[in-house]
């Protein structure tokens, strides 16, 4: 017990100890803003990997660590698409995942946002043209927000997600 208390006191507040976002993602379209206004300031996200190299997943996971702590901005990771306001899709959409992506999109209740995270989701990145890749994401489902980077830093992802919550 004392060990735990001592550790917490010694560590202090880790939240916010990170470099500021540097890369500006493209500005949000008015349509995306309009769609997002339905969620007020809370955003439940379902993350879908459609063939990424897992670096984007590592950075999404980093958003939930005490340093970025996305929950404090009302950004919440939902376990099921049926509980989600937004889908964050990573990876170039492989032939094996194409159908699963469409299923997930159908299962997500309207209104919904689709966020393409990382270069692969936006234009297939290093895997462009391969026989096993059918992407990018917007070939399969409509994409509202794009966050470029390979992978984008967590600070950039957090900035893009909080931008969505801003009033236009």
């Amino acid at each position: 017990m004392f060990r735990i208390l001592k550790k917490s006191l010694k560590t202090g507040v880790a939240t916010g100890r990170h470099p500021q976002a540097t890369q500006s993602s493209e500005p949000l379209t008015p349509e995306a803003h309009k769609k997002a206004s339905a969620f007020n300031r809370s955003l439940a996200i379902r993350e879908v990997d459609t063939g990424s190299c897992n670096a984007c997943e590592v950075e999404m996971n980093a958003l939930t660590n005490p340093v970025y702590d996305a929950e404090r901005f009302g950004i919440h990771i939902a376990a099921s698409p049926r509980h989600a306001d937004a889908l964050v899709v990573t990876g170039p959409v492989t032939v094996n995942m194409a159908r699963a992506l469409k299923d997930v999109y159908k299962q997500t209740p309207d209104p919904k946002l689709v966020i393409a995270l990382g270069d692969c989701a936006i234009d297939c990145g290093a895997f462009k043209g391969s026989y096993a890749v059918t992407g990018p994401v917007d070939r399969h489902i409509p994409v509202d927000v794009r966050i470029p980077g390979c992978p984008p830093r967590p600070a950039d992802i957090l900035k893009a997600l909080t931008d969505i919550q801003e009033r236009p």
């Binding site: 699963a100 990145g125 096993a132």
Partner: peptide, 28 residues
């Protein structure tokens, strides 16, 4: 499910230029 055809993609690259692809086999 995430089969992206990495080994075939390697065959399309020159020897010296394929390092970025190797970096993206498994991001972690």
């Amino acid at each position: 499910w995430t089969h992206r055809g990495v080994e075939k993609l390697f065959e399309q690259q020159p020897l010296a230029a394929a390092v970025p692809l190797a970096e993206r086999v498994s991001g972690d």
